[in-house]
Computed example of a mutant assay.
Amino acid sequence: MLQASTRALLIGPVIAASVFLAGCGAAMEPASGAGSAAPRAAAPVAAPGEAVAAGSAVVSDLGAAVDPASLPAGALYRNPANGRDEVIVGNIAHTALLIGDSQSEPQASWPRRALTGLGYDVFFCGKGGTGFVASNGTTGNYVDALQRGDWHLPYGFPPLVLIEGGGNDAKQGASNEQISANADRLITTIKQRYPGAKLAMVGTLGKGADHGGARRAEVDALLGTVAADHGIPFVSVGDWLTRYGLESQLKDSVHMNGEGHRALGELLGDRLAKLGLRLS
């Protein structure tokens, strides 16, 4: 680590803040081979408390340290409490951190719609093809992606963290033991990083065990057990496609079309509200 007097870099292009905040900045780029990720060329290292390079940077002599309140939304900041690069969010007190896969990734996805309906801005950390165990070849699974810096968490203390997923774990054949262990690691990591935040989990969207969704339903139930072990609210969605007649609103075998996202967003928002998770 360089001394605190090292010149820091402040990002040029700034990610605009909105109800669908852009979310975690990628710190890794795809390697040429599938299943691995190669780091970018190293940028100058900033000391804790300084801004760090991200994207197309502009040199700025910021002195010994930076007040994070002076940085624009979207800037990376090296948190002196943990030495990790984190993203400045414009209104962290009204922001829900959403960790998820391709069900959550679209800006108008059903988990994001549910959260915005409860009054939150949304900061998304996730990627299609990932899960508690599953990786998509360029990004690690949830906890590994966060710990190795594929994604950056928001700086500060959001009032809610919502974790969604499990479908890719079912698809890629992850075992119950692997899923439980990594879900436990992720929840423990989030509790340590955001001790004042409420946590909740959403299971694995599916058709139910009696309608061809056996493994997805199993993973959904398994995640419910993990959530119960940690004492956090859980919303089971393992049979929602058939329970609420939403199969006709699938655009493929597992992802919703626009109307499906709207319908599921309302259903999930209602469940989260009943769990007392509306922004106060």
Rank of each mutant, 00 (worst) to 15 (best):
L275Y: 00
G137K: 07
L2D: 00
A114Q: 03
A27V: 14
K198D: 01
G238Q: 10
T138L: 00
A43R: 09
T189L: 12
E259D: 15
L98Q: 07
S5K: 05
A16P: 10
C125S: 13
A46E: 02
A53L: 12
S104H: 01
L241V: 06
T116P: 01
H255M: 10
A93N: 11
Y194V: 13
G35W: 05
I163Y: 01
K251F: 15
L21F: 11
A228L: 05
T130W: 02
L199M: 13
E218D: 15
G63F: 00
A41P: 08
P30C: 04
R78Y: 01
L268E: 01
A214M: 15
A51E: 08
E177L: 09
R78K: 10
M1G: 08
P159R: 09
G137C: 11
L98H: 04
A73Q: 15
G258Y: 08
P30G: 03
G74E: 10
A64T: 04
L199I: 12
N82T: 03
L279D: 02
I179R: 04
S175H: 13
L160S: 12
T188I: 06
L162Q: 04
V235E: 02
N168P: 07
V19H: 09
K191H: 05
L97K: 02
L264A: 05
L205D: 00
A41H: 07
L275H: 03
L279N: 00
